[in-house]
């Protein structure tokens, strides 16, 4: 079971969280102006990287807040969690510190 650092509550067991898919996929301010191709990409196209993945989690059985998380899909190590709305961290800088 992963131990996940909720940016609002601190470290809590994975049982308290729900996965929320890829992070930093912004909904257009005015979807009516988005063409089909870009709208399809927004709806359905998601990354599946081997390595660092930015994803959303929700502390569903805790504070209820959504937050973002950078996780290494190879080692399953959660490198960083941060509040929704904060900028996406630099991937290269994060990956240098994955091994404890």
């Amino acid at each position: 079971m992963l131990l996940i650092e909720c940016p609002y509550c601190g470290p809590r067991p994975e049982l308290e969280f729900r996965y929320g898919g890829e992070a930093h996929v912004a909904r257009a301010a005015d979807p009516a102006t988005v063409d089909d191709e870009h709208w399809t990409a927004f709806l359905f196209w998601r990354g599946n990287p081997k390595g660092l993945h930015f994803e959303r989690w929700r502390h569903a059985s805790g504070c209820g807040r959504f937050f973002n998380c950078a996780r290494d899909t190879v080692s399953d190590v959660i490198v960083k969690t941060y509040k929704a709305g904060e900028p996406k961290p630099d991937a290269a800088r994060l990956m240098t510190g994955t091994t404890p």
């Binding site: 729900r18 929700r58 209820g64 959504f66 929704a84 709305g85």
Partner: peptide
């Protein structure tokens, strides 16, 4: 509720 919270917290802030 999760759907509403999702949009409230992350899109319609």
């Amino acid at each position: 509720l999760a759907h509403m919270e999702d949009y409230l917290q992350t899109e319609f802030t």
